[in-house]
């Protein structure tokens, strides 16, 4: 089996994997980082979004081997569980989540947006969320959360 090495949440990791191992399988099953979720098999729901070298990608539509040598960050990197990242705090403050299943993917997705557009408009946030499905919130409070989170991050 080929060996894959990458940096995940700042830590160097290395493992032998089957070539067909998806990045999300590597993250969930090899690294036991279960905050990244799988909600579909057609690359649409966005529950699996992580950052690859600073940009958001769908980890269900990428091989672990494609991330060889790359820097991957997952939802677990944002907080130690006590202090929330400003974007996470905004989601809590504005009730931007209900069941929580899509939430890690949404948060990782919008952090990519905010890194390029520190003060996104409502329409820009809605457009950006094309690749994230949420069945609980009607998106209303997600949009509010993203804008508040962006502001808190200094946008």
């Amino acid at each position: 089996m080929p060996t894959v090495s990458m940096t995940v949440n700042g830590k160097q990791v290395s493992a032998d994997v089957e070539a067909r191992t998806l990045l999300v399988e590597f993250i969930r099953e090899h690294l036991d980082l279960t905050g990244t979720h799988v909600g579909c098999d057609t690359s649409q729901c966005g529950a699996c979004v992580v950052h690859l070298d600073g940009r958001s990608v769908k980890s269900c539509t990428m091989l672990a081997l494609e991330a060889d040598g790359a820097e991957v960050t997952t939802i677990e990197s944002l907080s130690n569980g006590v202090e929330l990242h400003p974007m996470q705090a905004a989601f809590k403050e504005h009730h931007g989540l209900q069941c929580g299943f899509c939430t890690p993917g949404v948060v990782m997705s919008v952090l990519d947006l905010v890194s390029r557009n520190p003060d996104p408009s409502e329409a820009e946030v809605r457009d950006w969320l094309e690749g994230n499905l949420c069945r609980c919130t009607g998106y209303h409070n997600i949009i509010k959360s993203v804008q508040a989170g962006a502001a808190a991050m200094g946008g």
Binding site: V49, R55, S56, V57, K58, S109, W128
Partner: peptide
């Protein structure tokens, strides 16, 4: 095309 994550890859 697609969505932001698809466009990133």
């Amino acid at each position: 095309i697609g969505d932001p994550q698809v466009r990133n890859r």
